[in-house]
Design a protein around this nucleic acid. Structure first.
Lengths: 183, 183
DNA sequence: TTGTTATCAAACATTTTGTTTTGTATCTAT
DNA sequence: ATAGATACAAAACAAAATGTTTGATAACAA
């Protein structure tokens, strides 16, 4: 990809993330993003159709890093999964998220956080059915999946936005204890 | 309160809820709300400063019904609470929510759902500490509270938006089994 | 009935959006 | 190194949405 495009794209991402830490997604204008990123108006619209698609592109960028190689491999041979170390895998995902925490903090601020969470849950719904096979619980399967997916994504939000002092290992332990350790 | 004001307020609420079932909060214009509610432009702005404060007013309206009498009484003498029937109280809240499901369905659609959820959690954070006293879990207290609050509000969203066939009793049972029945 | 107030319609300035144009600088591939 | 392609900035632009103001009318409470 053209270096000029990369530069513009990153400048806009960074500017937007920075603005999101200060004010609501809804109240940020394209003009502000342009000014903060120091790019031309037409340049912005050459890259992104709307403010929404900009946000979506940022989310996709992060998910491609987080869910890149590892989880898809796991999914491909999930039959051999029963004895797998779930805690290790959760921790692994959390490390990936921590690598992106700079952009994540902006994304998870205020109301944009909810949009990120929505996309995040979509990814998790594909990745998590494996983890819950072992849980026995007398509730509808899709209630349980929703519960686990929401609990994990909210755990991440709690961690990134307000409690960065904890390590991925600790967060994984909290999550597993509260959600997956069903008597 | 002046009957005309009540009428306008309800017309706008109803119009907005109806629009929210069809399209995103962000993409709804004040003009559309005005047209749907069949009120004048200046009238709308006499009632609500912005689209956001309209949404907030709708949420507050619902919460006043749901958390009106009962929970505050409970809070006032929580020392006598240890032996209380939690399942009964949860069910009670769910019945109140079910009464408002007409407006709730709109509010919980798409991205406005996240805004409702945000306010909902604020209320729940005040009401729920009682419920989690009995849970023993080796995690930070505010992680646990966040977990329970998020799980309950997501349970409500799951129910109202996609699984209305279940009764409040059933939903309460699902929630308690997954969240409060820690071994 | 009388004074008050909520409403509507219409016009309005302002802000934001998204597009188009033109000249310039930077890239890639040969 | 050069040539053609393309990403860029700046500016001007139309269209859409916002939020305010006006004056006349109808519904209200007391």
């Amino acid at each position: 990809m053209d270096r000029r495009q990369q530069k513009t794209r990153q400048a806009v991402f960074h500017a937007f993330s920075s603005l999101l830490e200060k004010k609501n997604f809804n109240n940020i204008t394209v003009q502000e993003i342009i000014d903060e990123a120091n790019v031309g108006r037409s340049t912005f619209y050459a890259h992104f159709e709307t403010k929404d698609s900009l946000l979506k592109a940022m989310c996709t960028d992060i998910f491609q890093h987080v869910f890149s190689d590892d989880l898809k491999q796991e999914n491909s041979h999930d039959f051999s999964h029963a004895g797998h170390d779930i805690q290790k895998e959760i921790t692994h995902i959390l490390y990936h998220l921590q690598d992106n925490r700079k952009n994540l903090k902006g994304l998870l601020s205020c109301d944009s956080g909810d949009i990120f969470m929505g996309y995040f849950k979509e990814y998790l719904e594909q990745a998590f059915p494996i983890f819950i096979k072992e849980i026995h619980c007398d509730v509808p399967a899709d209630y349980l999946l929703n519960h686990v997916v929401c609990s994990f994504s909210e755990t991440v939000r709690w961690w990134i936005t307000k409690h960065e002092q904890y390590t991925p290992e600790q967060i994984a332990a909290f999550f597993i204890q509260c959600v997956l350790k069903q008597g």
